[in-house]
Design a protein around this nucleic acid. Structure first.
Length: 414
RNA sequence: CGGGGUGUAGUGAAUCGGCAUCACGCAUCGUUCGGGACGAUGAGACACUGGGUUCAAUUCCCAGCACCCCGACCA
């Protein structure tokens, strides 16, 4: 991709009314644009990051047997009345009337998924169902805040599983928990699996995946040894208490919730009549589990965790491009070498953002590269001759390499 | 929804009753090119909206709206 053609330019000065790190850098780098509080456009760079995140999630969920679908965002009131959530979730749900009919914008999809299940499944042989989709969620937040971390409209992966037995639900619930840990690791996030309350979703305790970060809204108490973690909204344990397994004192920290998993049991199935014929020929109600990851929030969290004072430092897995190629100087020789390097890198299957601008100084290009935060920076200039300078965004040192060596090295990094 | 803050060009700021300024960015031209370079020329603002006070309001007052922050609530 030629930077000169990329839609969305960097901004030098930080918009004054943004204080959160993710909003500052994502806005300045041209990753997102704000339409209103809590509503963002994903610009090309931001959308590339989201697609990388999506790909990782898709791979891991597919590995648990998940099948991808796409459910509607416009829902009739009647489906929400079946579980009573039209009333109980009124606060978070956008509801409106049109032509004498009541509608809601999707804030979650349990009801829609269960409707699918009862229409298409009627024997234990069809279980378990593991269906997921990536789509927008609308939530009437009383206060949108912290950039993309709490929007009124955001992208989410939600997975729903329906089982014939509680044991099977528990088994899959654990399996998804493990998949989530793998996902967050690949996203460059150190997520802790934390016990928490279910909010509007369920009265039972659930698990959240929390990334330790000062700007987080949640507070957790956890054992650094990894065998205990609870959200402070439910915990009875005090900070500083010795961990039972001798890992030292429990710590209290702020954290960002990047994912959560719920077990609903048969509560909604009973209300919605999601039943099936079991082995013994009897009619039984199905067990439901629900698992969510906010993609836009994940992107914001990565920015919160991986940055310095110059900009974001994307982990290679989620970076919008593998390498950021810059040419310095406008001599025909340098321009030709830059073009050649770009072509060769692309040919080798490397995703390159090529800053081909001729009217921007070296300092400007460096500053933009740091702000955008692609993990590898490559420079072609008079100084580099027929070689290419290789530098990691996260490091200080650079080295002069041949194009072939660069290709090998970039592939190793990404 | 309670409390606080802020609304002036795309962005950041100045003016704080008297013809709306500056920087960055943008456009054209030229010189430049290893950490946001320089010169020249130019475009770009109904000073958030509505009302009030005043000879005169971007400036003072009131109301509304928007955004940000804290809280409540929530992924």
């Amino acid at each position: 991709m030629l930077y000169s053609k990329l839609f969305g330019k960097t901004i030098k000065d930080t918009p004054t009314d943004e204080t959160s790190i993710n909003a500052k850098f994502l806005l300045r780098g041209g990753f997102v644009d704000k339409l209103m509080a809590g509503s963002y456009t994903l610009m090309p760079l931001g959308f590339l990051v989201i697609k990388k995140i999506e790909k990782i999630i898709r791979e891991e969920i597919n590995s648990t047997g998940g099948q991808e679908i796409l459910m509607p965002l416009l829902h009739p009131k009647s489906i929400w009345n079946e579980t009573g959530r039209w009333e109980s979730a009124k606060e978070v749900m956008y509801q409106f009337e049109k032509n004498d009919k009541d509608y809601a914008l999707s804030f979650t999809h349990e009801e829609i998924l269960l409707d699918l299940a009862r229409k298409h499944v009627n024997t234990y042989r069809d279980f378990p169902l593991k269906l997921y989709h990536f789509s927008t969620k609308f939530r009437n937040e009383l206060r949108a805040k912290s950039g993309v971390l709490r929007g009124r409209e955001f992208l989410m992966k939600d997975l729903y599983s329906v089982h014939a037995t509680e044991e099977d639900l528990d088994k899959y619930y654990a399996e998804v928990g493990d998949a989530y840990l793998r996902i967050f690791k690949r996203l460059g996030l150190d997520a802790i699996k934390v016990e928490a309350a279910g909010g509007v979703f369920t009265k039972d305790n659930t698990h959240e995946f929390q990334v330790i970060c000062e700007s987080g809204e949640d507070e957790i108490i956890y054992c650094p040894g990894g065998d205990f973690a609870e959200n402070t909204e439910i915990t009875k344990v005090k900070e500083g208490k010795e961990c039972d397994l001798g890992h030292g004192p429990l710590k209290k920290v702020r954290a960002i919730e990047v994912g959560n998993i719920f077990r609903f049991g048969t509560v909604y199935s009973e209300k919605m009549g999601v039943s099936f014929t079991d082995k013994d020929g009897k009619k039984k109600f199905a067990y439901l589990g629900s698992y969510g990851i906010g993609l836009t929030r994940a992107m914001g969290t990565i920015a919160e965790v991986h940055h310095d004072d110059k900009g974001i430092i994307w982990p290679a897995n989620v970076a919008p491009f593998d390498a950021h190629l810059i040419t310095l100087g406008n001599s025909q020789l340098t321009i030709d070498r830059g073009k050649k390097a770009y072509a060769e890198l692309e040919k080798a299957g490397i995703e390159v953002l090529y800053d081909d601008r001729e009217d921007v100084t070296a300092g400007g290009k460096f500053a933009d590269a740091d702000l955008i935060g692609i993990p590898v920076r490559l420079i072609v200039s008079e100084k580099t001759g027929d070689k290419v300078e290789f530098k990691l965004r996260s490091g200080k040192d650079s080295e002069l390499l041949s194009l072939d060596e660069v290709i090998k090295k970039v592939k190793k990094e990404s």
